Amino acid sequence: MNPETDRPQLTTREEVMFFDTDCGQVVHNIAYLRMIETCRTRLASKMGMDLASMSETRLFPVVTRTEIDYRRPAKLGDWLLIHGSLGEVGAARFWCHFEVRRESNDDLLITCKQSLALVQMPDGKPVRLPKEWNY
């Protein structure tokens, strides 16, 4: 089994809207985070943490760190592909990796790495990761 390709991954597609941009029609950094959040939420569902399950169990993946490298700007009207994948998995923390590319020419716009922990709410208590995540 190849850990790089056998781990859960997902690609979402987003169109850059007016509310995503500044007066120069360039995407705001916060808009990329929203797009990554959408991809990560759908990736979590693929890993067995769909929204209904999280609501029932009150167990949520919580972002503890985000690293982003901005390489090129996206602009109003661009269609973007956001690719997310499960990266390293530890006892109590895991990483997700993301790339944002312009669909029309495959330009790499953003790379992002996020560290997450599972937290039991409402107490905010971190819990160990499921054993089946250890690839």
Rank of each mutant, 00 (worst) to 15 (best):
G24K: 12
A44E: 03
F60P: 01
T57M: 11
F18C: 06
F19M: 07
S45I: 05
C39Q: 04
F19N: 13
H28L: 14
C39F: 06
V62A: 12
E14S: 12
E14H: 14
R58K: 14
F18L: 14
L59K: 10
R13V: 10
G48Q: 02
T12K: 00
M35W: 05
Y32G: 06
G24S: 14
E37S: 13
G24H: 15
D50K: 07
S53D: 08
C39M: 04
E15L: 15
C39Y: 11
R42E: 10
V62R: 04
K46S: 13
M17I: 02
R42D: 05
V62N: 06
Q25Y: 07
S55K: 14
R34W: 07
G48N: 11
V27R: 00
D22V: 08
F19K: 08
R34C: 03
K46N: 12
G48Y: 02
M47C: 02
C39A: 13
E15R: 13
F19D: 07
F60E: 01
T12H: 02
I30V: 15
S55N: 14
Q25T: 10
I36N: 01
L51T: 11
K46R: 15
E14A: 11
Y32S: 10
M47F: 01
M35E: 00
Y32Q: 06
L33F: 09
M54L: 03
G48I: 03
T57N: 09
G48C: 01
E37W: 04
R13T: 15
M47G: 02
N29H: 14
T38M: 15
T21R: 05
M49L: 15
T12N: 01
A31F: 02
L33I: 13
M54C: 09
E56N: 06
P61K: 00
V27S: 01
R58P: 01
M17L: 13
R42L: 10
K46M: 12
S53F: 15
S53Y: 08
M17V: 01
T57W: 00
S45C: 07
Y32F: 13
S53P: 00
E56H: 10
S55G: 14
T12I: 05
Y32L: 07
R13A: 12
M17C: 04
T57A: 07
I30P: 01
E15Y: 15
E56Y: 06
L59Y: 00
V26D: 09
E15C: 14
D50S: 00
M47A: 05
D50R: 01
L33H: 13
R34Q: 07
V26H: 11
C39I: 02
T57L: 00
M17A: 13
E14C: 08
V16N: 05
R42K: 11
M17E: 10
A52S: 15
E37Q: 05
R34K: 04
C23S: 14
A52W: 02
E14L: 11
G24T: 11
I36M: 08
F18A: 09
V26C: 09
T38L: 15
D20W: 08
G48W: 04
T12D: 05
V62P: 05
M54A: 05
F19V: 15
T41S: 14
G48T: 01
C23V: 15
C23N: 14
I30E: 09
T12V: 09
E15H: 15
D22A: 03
G48K: 00
V16R: 03
I36K: 08
H28I: 04
M35H: 06
M35I: 00
A31V: 03
S53G: 09
I30M: 12
L59Q: 09
L59E: 10
Y32T: 05
S55R: 10
T21Q: 09
L51E: 12
